[in-house]
Every structure is written in C-alpha cells, then in structure tokens.
Design a protein around this nucleic acid. Sequence first.
DNA 1: AATACGGGGTT
DNA 2: AACCCAGTATT
Length: 350
Amino acid sequence: MLFHNKLIAWYLQNKRYLPWRETKNPYAIWLSEIILQQTRVAQGLPYFEAFLTTYPTVFDLADAKEDDIMRLWQGLGYYSRARNLHATAKKIAYERNGVFPDNYKDLLTLKGVGEYTAAAIASIAFDQIVPVVDGNVFRVLARIYGITSDISASSTKKEFQLLASELISPNEPATFNQAIMDFGAIQCTPKSPLCHNCPFTNDCVAFQTNQIENLPVKLGKVKVKKRYLDFFIFLDNNKKTLIEQRTQKDIWQQLYQFPIVDRFVDNKIDVHSILQDKYPSIKYENITLLNTEHIIHILSHQKLHIHFWLINTSENIDKGTYWKDLNNFGFPIVIHNFINSLNLKHLTKQ
DNA sequence: AATACGGGGTT
DNA sequence: AACCCAGTATT
C-alpha cells in the first residue's frame, strides 16, 4: 500500500478535531498557522479563538491598533509573530483587497510566512501539492526511512522536503499534510511513541533496527545566558505607576514593562543611586524589595533572574498609568503574572 | 550556516 | 533539567 494511502487511512481514524480544519478560509488558516509556529495546539487554541472573535476578517485585524494585538498575543511568546501578523494583515487588506496569495511562491513573500507556513496555507487552503516540513515531519520520516542526518543543521531540511514531495498525495495534499503532522503529534511522538499499534512498523527502519530512541538525530545545544533584571514599580497616592514600552531589538519587543535595570552579570545594584540618577525628580518615601527570592523565568536562550522593587512616592506621577488600567497593555507574562499576584491595597499602605 | 526569539507541557 | 512544540528573521 502506498505511503500516503496508509497515512491517510490512519488519519481518518485518529485525527483531532481542530477548528481551523472546519474552514477553507485562507484568513483563518493563515492565522492558525502563525499561532501554531513552535507552539502546541493546546496552547494556541484559545488564542486562535480569541483572535478570530476579536478580528473576524483580515480587515478587522489590519485596522487594529498594534498595542491591542500585542495585548491579545500576550503570553504566547515569539512576539515578532504578532508584529508580522499585523503587517501582513495590512498588506492583504490594503494592497490586495483582502485576497490572500493562492500559491506557495507568493505566500512566501508575506512577513512571518516561511517555507513551512507557505506550504501549509498553499496546501490546506488552496489544495496545492506542496509538502510541509515541520518538527513532526522530521521525526516521522527520520524514523520510518531511517534518516540519520542532523535535523538541527539547516541543510538537512532540503533532504526531507525532497522525500516529502515524493510521498505527498497528489490528490489530497491538504489531508496528507495534516495527516502527517497529526501522526507525529499523536502516534509517532518524541518520547514513547505508540509503536505497538502503528501501521508502519513493518516498513519503519527505526522500529526494525531498534533505533526509535535515537531518531531523529538532533545535535547542537543552545547555550542559555543568565540575565538579571530589576523592575521598579513606582506608586503614587493616586495609584498611578510608571510603565514604558520595549522598543529595542531584544526580547519582548513592543511589550510594556516597569522601569528596569538590566545586566548580564550578577552584581548588586544600588537602588538609591539608580533612582537619583535616572529619576531625580521623583522623591520617594519607601523602597521595598517585593520578592526576596529571585523570580526565575526561562526563555529559549536566556535564564532571567528578576527582582521587583516597590517605590512609594507622595508626589504625583504625571506620566503615570493608573494601576487598574495596566491590563490594557501587553506585558511579558512574567510581569503580567507578578502584577496579578500583588494586592494593591497592601502596596499603598506601606 | 548559526543564532535569537517565549512560554509551557512532558518526561 | 532536558526536550520539544504545525518556524521565521536576522546575522
């Protein structure tokens, strides 16, 4: 039996219900694919629903304020996706009358749309015969075909694209692509794959040679830098605080934060001199370290050690934001969670 | 070709 | 603690 027939047969019996599979609307499919980049279905699902409800069409998304998009994206990570999402929505809405490109090559020109996403949209929305190669496809094909190339090497992708292009069903490319990804997510999982009832065990090189644990081959480990962040939470008698937007090319671009001291060495900071230096006009009554233990927050390339300082002042912070309005802004999730953990009354009493 | 970019779930 | 997730853009 042909590979694609066997795979699709498995899919029809085992596929997940996913809302973006109930439509051929390129906008909804594009939205789902951007959200799902490096993101588990379970994590992305509520964001997909929220975006589609808030912005039912590409025109609604194009007309949105970037800050609102960033706030809705809050907690999903890889925030350049949200910025590129907005840029592409504007392009589709204003330059193309809301019409998405209908083929792989033209989809590839959109911001935030790379080889995987272009192939996914081209096949799923427009039935083009273009194979997707994502983490699932790497794993499934590496095992079944016994491919030992290092999947973290950028040159390896071509090898898998070529194989996948030979395997894809020419009649049902959309179904095939979703099938191979579901198969990787459900059956051929990274750890403890379900080989006992797998339809491919007779063909699977990794299974036949007892190499399931060793495939795919992934070399190269990311080095994680330690970084030390101290945030200053000013609070005046009107319950206003100071926030700022991160505009530099760095983590959390375009999100908001409290005034910060940020360094890559674990040295003590002198809060008083920093305040005098950076905020000489603000006289403060009280400085309190709100978390005696570092808050640890792990990113893909950085391990953050975070302190939050409360600075009570009796002077009015003119450019401040009312505490109750903080939820109108997108914050890094670690800051958002800390804000929600605080009891405002307790803070103002000090 | 290598690196940066989030946050969370699994093992 | 390591691994990985429906990857992309930048260097």
